[in-house]
Every structure is written in C-alpha cells, then in structure tokens.
Design a binder for these strands. Structure first.
Lengths: 226, 226
DNA sequence: CGACTATTTGAGGCGTATCAAGAAGTGTGG
DNA sequence: CCACACTTCTTGATACGCCTCAAATAGTCG
C-alpha cells in the first residue's frame, strides 16, 4: 500500500479517502494531475468556487482569512501528505498560497463526490478528515484565546516538530510573519520568544539559517505549552 | 416533517440526520430519551468516553476546554435545536455544562453509527454537521487571533441575534464571564465594551435585566465586526 | 430583608504591539 | 566571486489595549 507506507500518523491521503488504493490507481480513477506553484503564488482565493482538492507532495501551503484592513489569520499550514481545499459548501473558506515552491496532487471535487455518493467508506473518510481539521481548529482556539506568547510559540514548535517527523530538527518553511499570523501575534513577538528560548537553551538556531531550529529540551517546551 | 418545520436555518436536527424522519419516529428507532440538567451542571467532561449525542430542547449549554491553571476557552454555545457531543474519536473533546436549566434529547452514539454505517444519507448528514462546526471554529479563530475587544463583542451580539431568531431582542442565557471566555477576554472588558455600545446608542439594556439587550443599530455593529 | 452573585466602573500595571534601526541572510548581475 | 539591492530577522524604546485588583451598584433568591 503506497499510500499507507508514507502515512505513519494515520492521516488519510487522497489515496486513503478512496480506501487505500495505491496513488497510481487514483490518477486513473479520478484523473488526478499534479500542479506546481511558485513561492507566494495563490492556489485559490477565499470564496472562489471550490472545484479542486489538493494533496501536498512537496513544499508547504498556508490557508488564511483576512479582515478588511489587512489583518490576517493563518488557520493552518499544509505540509507534504496533507490534504487541503476540502469543502462542504460551494466556495473555499480560505485563501491558500504556496509558502515555498510547492507541488500538489489535484483532484476535481466532483470526481470525489461521485464516488463518495455511492461508497460509504469513501464518505466516512471524508468525515474523518473533516473531524481531524475540526480537532485542530478547536485546539487552536484555546491557543489563540488563552495562551501567552511564549506558550503559543512553544506549542507551535512542538506541532511542527511532530509533523516534521519528530526528529527535533525543524526546518521551518515559513517566515516569522507567517508564524505570527498563525499564532495571533506580531513577528517581533515571535522573534523575541524564539530568542528567549534560545537563551534558555531550549533550542538552538542552525549556523546557516534562522529557519533551522534544533530542539534541545522538549520537556521544557511541553511544560510551557501548559 | 416535524424536524424540518422548526429548522429554518437548515441546521440538521437529530431527526434530520436520520433523514427527515419525524422526531417521534427517532425515539422509536434510536431509543432516544430526554434528560434535564440544572444550572451549571456538567453534562459530560473532557476526554470522557463519548457515548451520547445531545440535541438541546430548551436552555443553553457551553462547551469548553481548560488549561492546567484554570484558564478557560469556551468554543461554542449550544441553543435550542443545536446538536452537540458529536465525536469522531473515542472521547469528548470538551466539557459541556448547562448554563441554565436545560432539557436535551439524548441519543446513544452507537445507535446512530449503526445506521450511518449502512445509510449513506445519514453519513452525509454527519459530515455536513461536522463541516458546519468547522466553519464556526475557523471564523472564531479569526476573531480570537485578530479582532479587538470591541469587534469581538460586536460579532458576539450579531451571532446571538442571528441564532436567537434575529429579532434584535437578545435574551442572553450566559453571564459576562461566559461571554468573556468565549471571546478570549475578561468579563470586565466585555462589560466595558457593552457599556460603550450602550453609550453610542448601538444597543440598550432592558430595564429589568442586563442580560436582555435590544439592538438599536445593527449596521453600526456590522461595521464594527469588520 | 439579608446574603449572595452578577455587573459596572475606576485606577493602575503588564504584556504585547508599534515604531525604528541595525544585522543577517538571499538573490542578482557584473 | 564580489557588489548591491532587497528581504528577513533581531533587538531596543516606547505606546497602548486589555488585564488585574478593588470597590460600589444592581440583581437574584431564600
């Protein structure tokens, strides 16, 4: 099972949604294709018709909402093997942009819905994906409503470490402003929190880049996450 | 169709989930019963086994998470005809408490899942409910991450007005602290925002109670909501 | 009526935002 | 490979919005 083997965290891929069929078969069954997006390129805009569903192959994507005066809230980052663009209504609820050069598998929505209408296992996978997104959103509400800046940054680092295979070596694809807009802070506050954690020997920046972070004391981070 | 007639906003009731069967029939089919909860009584606790699904008949319920030091984030208020306690995982993700004296229809989870496993229309209704919850959570993330206290209170009033039939007469079942914990603020800040809106003639308190609010300028509120 | 809870209002403090400047990193063309 | 422009990140100084603490008022219920 191709789609299972690269899926340790039990997150369904588009292959899993149509029941563990190897990715190759999905292409045949759904006419899935691949698309490539440059850095900062928009993949779709908020309230556009939601025609396609995407699975990140490589790169990273941000999904966000904006207020009329430009304040932005990033609601999720999508990393390789993540699915995004799954909608129940007619239109997309977010704008999605590639954070770095990104390739994605693209499935037409009606193809998937056609199968889901007759196959209850497909429908159940759609439900479990949506439930997973809901779980993440609810935890993020607690973070945005009640955690301090340090707690937010600690939670972010733990989330990224976990999603980037938990090696303690985090290669962040996104800039400080993206992190800030995800955590409901400013980029300066994020930077200060990271510097503080570095001074406390909880983490280290790599020599080459401030986006490469090495976790040195995960227990301390977990304590900060409350 | 009983369940349709009291359902103008197209929110599925437990009746709708099993396809528009009148409520009477649900009781027979699922063995649904009714339960009553006193003010501040816990309905279920976070991470308890999620055995039951509830539909508010009368009253109001809050669903919340807490941090170890007591900070609380209310993620949703449940009003009459709302369903809550629907989980995809094994355990509840929130604590649910009655805000006032509340009666609810109770359905055993496995009864519903038994039907959903074979009936794709039931499964699709479960998906659409979860998607609706997700939509609300995502909008609330924007509020918690990026809106000012005044914008949050304005958004709250508009949400409550809409859910309480949009008459402009809002009888809030919850106290200021509950509102604050829903909006990621303190109760004093909520109180100050409401007083400010009263001074601006955007709303009025009823003579009898500060929980009865009359909206006088909804346009102004919508402007504040960004 | 009296005890208790909920709400309002005020004064002051704190945490994060804002503004600003410099350092570090990245990319491009010569 | 370096020079230059540009973006990203860090750090400092200050401002401000919301929180905290406190007290008075209003509302609720026995």
């Amino acid at each position: 099972m191709l789609s299972r083997s690269r899926n340790p965290a039990n997150q369904p891929t588009i292959g899993d949604i149509i029941q563990e069929v190897p990715v190759i078969a999905i292409h045949a069954r759904f006419g899935a294709s691949e698309a490539c997006f440059g850095k900062d390129e928009e993949i779709y805009g908020e309230s556009e018709p939601a025609d396609c569903i995407f699975e990140v192959i490589s790169g990273a994507v941000r999904s966000y909402k904006v207020l009329s005066d430009g304040r932005r809230q990033i609601c999720a980052f999508h990393l390789p093997s993540d699915i995004f663009g799954l909608e129940n209504g007619i239109n997309y609820r977010f704008t999605a942009e590639a954070i770095v050069e990104t390739t994605a598998r693209v499935v037409r929505r009606h193809s998937l819905e056609y199968v889901a209408a007759s196959d209850i296992r497909v429908a159940r996978n759609l439900l479990s994906m949506t439930a997973r997104n809901l779980l993440h959103a609810e935890n993020h509400m607690l973070l945005l409503g009640r955690k301090t800046s340090l707690e937010r940054v600690a939670a972010f680092l733990l989330e990224m470490d976990q999603r980037l295979k938990g090696t303690g070596m985090i290669a962040l694809p996104m800039c400080r402003r993206d992190i800030a807009d995800y955590l409901g802070l400013t980029l300066e506050t994020v930077s200060r929190a990271l510097s503080y954690l570095r001074d406390q020997h909880v983490l280290e920046f790599s020599e080459t880049s401030q986006r490469q972070i090495v976790l040195q004391d995960r227990q301390q981070l977990q304590k900060l996450d409350s």
